[in-house]
Design a protein around this nucleic acid. Structure first.
Lengths: 113, 113
DNA sequence: TCGACTATTCTAGTTTTATGGAAACGAATG
DNA sequence: CATTCGTTTCCATAAAACTAGAATAGTCGA
């Protein structure tokens, strides 16, 4: 992931509503969610939702697939992992000190963290 | 990490100069860098640098330690890892499908990725 | 105490981004 | 074809963020 892509992704995520949308899609997984479904769950007007969905799509963080009248949005997991890799790349100049354990904090429900 | 902390961190990082500062400090590791040192390397005026450093510090992404006339800035690795954990938490509702491998993309120089 | 040096705060002007009502668009349904 | 429904675009207003010169505050060496 290039610097400009990382900036675009971080800018897109640095907003309450967009982060909520993205998290919803991350949890939803590869199945994705319909646009209206997202709007209902997050309680935002269609115009506002569409604006933020476009921002996320432009940043490469989500993808849109029209299905008839509906549009299915999905998180772009490659982009998410690429962003994480960008943030932590060459952490502490590559040394493996205690402070630099990128990814060590990743956990899932039930992991006890 | 709470949602508001994550938003603050992502907003702070979603800016070219701040991301450059943060990456510099991530690579620098626990030793950190002096403020003027950062300004020299990134070529930005003192006032602008100070503004962005404060933003990053407010977001909890970096810490400042005055050392006489100088101020040493360091990346807050806990915050970085917490942010990554927030982004990927409960990915795909916890299933371990191929699309959902949070942290799998993390790599260091020489990893061949 | 003085002057040199480092860093921050003040301040104002410019630019960018967010919001949501209204209208328009496209696809399915009858 | 006409209608309905989900979604997007248009637009004007409102709000927030970026930038950097100038002034200020703290620290060190002489």
């Amino acid at each position: 992931m290039e610097t400009n892509d990382a900036i675009a992704a971080l800018t897109a995520l640095g907003h309450a509503k967009r982060l909520a949308i993205f998290r919803l899609l991350v949890v939803a997984g590869p199945v994705g969610r319909m646009a209206g479904d997202i709007g209902d769950e997050l309680g935002m007007p269609g115009a506002t939702l569409s604006f933020h969905l476009k921002e996320l799509a432009n940043a490469g963080l989500i993808t849109a697939e029209p299905q008839g009248r509906f549009v299915c949005y999905r998180a772009a997991f490659d982009a998410m992992n690429g962003l994480i890799a960008y943030l932590t790349y060459n952490c502490c100049a590559g040394s493996t000190g205690a402070a630099c354990t990128p990814g060590s904090a990743i956990c899932q429900p039930g992991d006890g963290c």
